[in-house]
């Protein structure tokens, strides 16, 4: 007997997590090994960066402003089928950016910069120091702050 078809095409259900998923899923989570036991590794302190905190910044605001300014309100609201299909596959610009991550070969700090940076075409803007791209720098947040956040949950 045939069961009514599931509407699974609406749910994005990857069989394996993408790199961007994994960054959000695992970084800063899980049990912490006592510092006295731990062997310190090159660059490992970068991993205490909390990639999931998105700082509300001028740049973020300008991005949304630009998106809403771009809207053509005279256009009919219903999307054509091709656009709709594209939407479903890509889930908007954010996913597009994230998809681009797949090919990145680099360290986790590069990964985080990419994930956080979003689509940063207009680099002239700045100023928020958190948004400075891609240069080597010491970790952004102290371990204690990150740990506390975890505990507050």
């Amino acid at each position: 007997m045939t069961v009514a078809p599931r509407t699974s095409h609406y749910l994005d259900r990857p069989s394996a997590s993408s790199l961007a998923d994994v960054v959000d899923l695992i970084l800063d989570k899980g049990l912490v090994i006592d510092i006295n036991l731990r062997v310190s590794l090159v660059g490992i302190e970068l991993l205490t960066v909390d990639a999931r905190i998105v700082v509300a910044s001028v740049d973020t605001y300008l991005r949304f402003a630009e998106a809403v300014n771009r809207l053509d309100l005279t256009q009919d609201k219903s999307e054509g089928l091709p656009e709709l299909m594209q939407d479903m596959q890509q889930g908007g610009a954010r996913h597009k950016t994230r998809g681009a991550l797949e090919g990145v070969k680099g360290t986790v700090s590069d990964v985080i910069d990419h994930v956080r940076g979003g689509d940063d075409e207009d680099e002239g803007e700045e100023p928020e120091e958190q948004q400075e791209e891609a240069q080597e720098r010491p970790r952004r947040r102290s371990r204690s702050a990150a740990t506390r956040r975890e505990r507050d949950r």
């Binding site: 997590s17 994994v22 695992i26 090159v42 490992i44 991993l47 360290t107 700090s109």
Partner: peptide
């Protein structure tokens, strides 16, 4: 331990 950890392959391997 002499190699920097945190390449995409490392993150994916951990989760896998």
């Amino acid at each position: 331990t002499g190699r920097p950890l945190g390449a995409p392959g490392d993150l994916l391997g951990h989760a896998r």
